[in-house]
Design a protein around this nucleic acid. Structure first.
Length: 113
DNA sequence: GTTCTGACTGCGA
DNA sequence: GTCGCAGCCAGAA
C-alpha cells in the first residue's frame, strides 16, 4: 500500500508524543525536531486543532518555559493541571523545570543528535 | 489571489 | 524579570 508521506502535522504530533512523561519541550523545539525550523506557530496551530485526548500537548510550552495561554484561561488551567499530575511543578504560569529543555534534547533524541 | 490571524521567537531596552 | 517590536510562515476567510 502507499506509504504516504507524513504531513507536517503528522511529524509535529509524532514529536509531541515522543516527549517523555515529566518533561516539557518548547514550540520551537518541537518544530525543529519535526524538521520544520521557525515553524513554532504551525505547531501551535496543529495543537489547537488536535482532538486527540491522548496527545501530551500540555508538555509543550513557550521558549521561556511559560504556558502559552493567558493565566487563568480554561486552557491554562487544564495544562497546569495535567503538568502537575505528571509531577511537573507550575509556578506563576511557568513550568518548574528551568533546564528541562536542555536535558530534553539528550533524553529524547540522544546526545549525538 | 489577497488579507488576516495566531497556543511563537529572539532581541534590545 | 518584564515589555514592546519585528520577523516568520502556514492555514483560514
Amino acid at each position: 500500500m502507499l506509504a504516504r508521506m507524513p504531513t507536517d502535522a503528522d511529524r509535529i504530533l509524532d514529536v509531541v508524543r515522543a516527549i517523555p512523561r515529566g518533561e516539557v519541550a518548547s514550540y520551537g523545539e518541537v518544530a525543529r525536531r519535526a524538521g520544520l525550523p521557525r515553524r513554532a506557530r504551525l505547531v501551535a496551530r496543529v495543537l489547537s486543532h488536535n482532538d486527540d485526548r491522548a496527545l501530551p500537548w500540555h508538555r509543550v510550552v513557550r521558549s521561556d518555559g511559560r504556558i502559552a495561554f493567558d493565566e487563568g484561561s480554561p486552557g491554562w488551567l487544564e495544562q497546569t493541571a495535567r503538568l502537575r499530575a505528571e509531577g511537573i511543578p507550575v509556578v506563576r504560569g511557568r513550568v518548574g523545570l528551568p533546564r528541562a529543555q536542555t536535558r530534553l534534547d539528550e533524553q529524547l533524541w540522544g546526545p549525538a543528535r
